[in-house]
Simulated scan of single mutants.
Amino acid sequence: MTRISAADAELKKSLAMEGDAGTKIWRVSIQPNADLAAHFLNINPPQGPGEATIAPRPDGQFDVFYLS
Protein backbone atom coordinates (compact mmCIF):
# COMPACT_ATOMS: atom_id res chain seq x y z
CA MET A 1 0.00 0.00 0.00
CA THR A 2 1.33 3.46 -0.81
CA ARG A 3 1.76 6.26 1.70
CA ILE A 4 -0.76 9.08 1.63
CA SER A 5 -0.60 12.62 2.94
CA ALA A 6 -2.34 13.71 6.14
CA ALA A 7 -4.88 15.65 4.07
CA ASP A 8 -5.60 12.59 1.94
CA ALA A 9 -5.94 10.48 5.10
CA GLU A 10 -8.48 12.95 6.50
CA LEU A 11 -10.48 12.81 3.26
CA LYS A 12 -10.31 9.01 3.16
CA LYS A 13 -11.55 8.74 6.74
CA SER A 14 -14.36 11.24 6.20
CA LEU A 15 -15.54 9.35 3.11
CA ALA A 16 -15.48 6.06 5.02
CA MET A 17 -17.56 7.62 7.81
CA GLU A 18 -20.27 8.72 5.31
CA GLY A 19 -21.36 5.09 4.86
CA ASP A 20 -24.17 3.39 6.76
CA ALA A 21 -23.98 4.83 10.28
CA GLY A 22 -25.62 1.73 11.72
CA THR A 23 -23.01 -0.70 10.44
CA LYS A 24 -19.37 -0.35 11.43
CA ILE A 25 -16.59 -2.25 9.68
CA TRP A 26 -12.88 -2.55 10.37
CA ARG A 27 -10.62 -0.58 8.04
CA VAL A 28 -6.84 -0.23 7.91
CA SER A 29 -4.55 2.69 7.08
CA ILE A 30 -0.76 2.50 6.88
CA GLN A 31 0.95 5.51 8.46
CA PRO A 32 4.69 6.32 8.22
CA ASN A 33 5.22 6.89 11.97
CA ALA A 34 3.51 6.66 15.37
CA ASP A 35 2.76 10.41 15.55
CA LEU A 36 0.85 10.38 12.26
CA ALA A 37 -0.93 7.18 13.29
CA ALA A 38 -2.16 8.91 16.47
CA HIS A 39 -3.11 12.02 14.48
CA PHE A 40 -5.10 9.87 12.05
CA LEU A 41 -7.11 8.34 14.91
CA ASN A 42 -7.90 11.79 16.32
CA ILE A 43 -9.28 13.23 13.06
CA ASN A 44 -12.97 14.09 13.51
CA PRO A 45 -14.74 12.04 14.51
CA PRO A 46 -12.04 10.67 16.84
CA GLN A 47 -12.01 6.96 17.53
CA GLY A 48 -13.39 5.88 20.90
CA PRO A 49 -12.23 3.13 23.28
CA GLY A 50 -12.09 -0.25 21.55
CA GLU A 51 -12.56 1.29 18.10
CA ALA A 52 -8.90 1.31 17.02
CA THR A 53 -5.50 -0.27 17.41
CA ILE A 54 -2.03 0.54 16.11
CA ALA A 55 0.52 -2.13 15.22
CA PRO A 56 4.16 -1.56 14.16
CA ARG A 57 5.25 -3.05 10.85
CA PRO A 58 8.69 -4.56 10.12
CA ASP A 59 9.41 -1.68 7.70
CA GLY A 60 9.04 0.97 10.45
CA GLN A 61 5.55 2.09 9.43
CA PHE A 62 2.38 1.52 11.46
CA ASP A 63 -0.85 -0.29 10.64
CA VAL A 64 -3.85 1.63 12.01
CA PHE A 65 -6.96 -0.53 12.35
CA TYR A 66 -10.14 1.46 13.05
CA LEU A 67 -13.90 1.06 13.02
CA SER A 68 -15.91 3.23 10.67
Rank of each mutant, 00 (worst) to 15 (best):
I43K: 01
D35I: 04
I25R: 11
N33D: 15
M17C: 12
G19C: 05
F40D: 06
A21M: 12
I30Q: 08
H39N: 06
F40E: 06
A34E: 10
A37I: 07
P45I: 01
D20I: 11
K24Y: 09
A38V: 03
T23F: 07
A37F: 07
Q31H: 02
I43G: 00
I43C: 02
D35K: 04
Q31N: 06
P45V: 02
W26T: 08
W26S: 07
L36D: 02
N33I: 02
T23E: 09
N33L: 02
W26N: 06
Q31M: 14
N44S: 06
A21K: 13
I25Y: 08
L15T: 14
N33G: 07
N42P: 01
R27G: 00
D35Q: 09
A37Q: 04
P32H: 05
N33T: 02
L15W: 15
G19E: 11
G19N: 12
E18R: 15
G19K: 12
I25P: 00
E18I: 06
R27F: 01
L41S: 03
N44I: 03
E18C: 13
P45C: 00
P45H: 00
L15K: 15
H39C: 02
D35H: 03
L36S: 04
P45A: 00
T23C: 09
T23K: 12
G22F: 08
L36Y: 01
N42G: 04
K24A: 09
E18G: 09
L36Q: 05
I25N: 06
N42W: 01
D20G: 08
D20R: 13
I25W: 04
A16C: 14
F40H: 14
L15Q: 15
M17G: 04
T23D: 06
S29F: 07
L41D: 01
N42T: 10
K24F: 08
A21T: 12
A16K: 14
A38Q: 07
A38S: 07
F40K: 08
F40L: 10
L15F: 15
V28G: 00
W26Q: 11
G22L: 04
A34Q: 09
L15N: 15
A38R: 06
N42A: 10
I30H: 10
L15R: 15
L36I: 00
N42F: 01
G22T: 07
N44P: 04
L41G: 04
S29E: 13
A34P: 02
P32M: 06
T23G: 01
I30Y: 11
A21D: 12
E18M: 13
L36C: 01
I43A: 02
G22H: 05
T23M: 11
D20A: 14
A16D: 15
I30S: 05
A16L: 15
I43Q: 03
N44T: 04
L15D: 15
A37H: 07
A16Y: 12
W26V: 10
Q31S: 06
N42E: 05
D20H: 14
H39R: 10
L15E: 15
H39W: 09
I43P: 00
K24T: 10
W26H: 04
V28M: 11
A34C: 05
L41F: 01
P45S: 01
E18V: 08
L41I: 03
S29A: 11
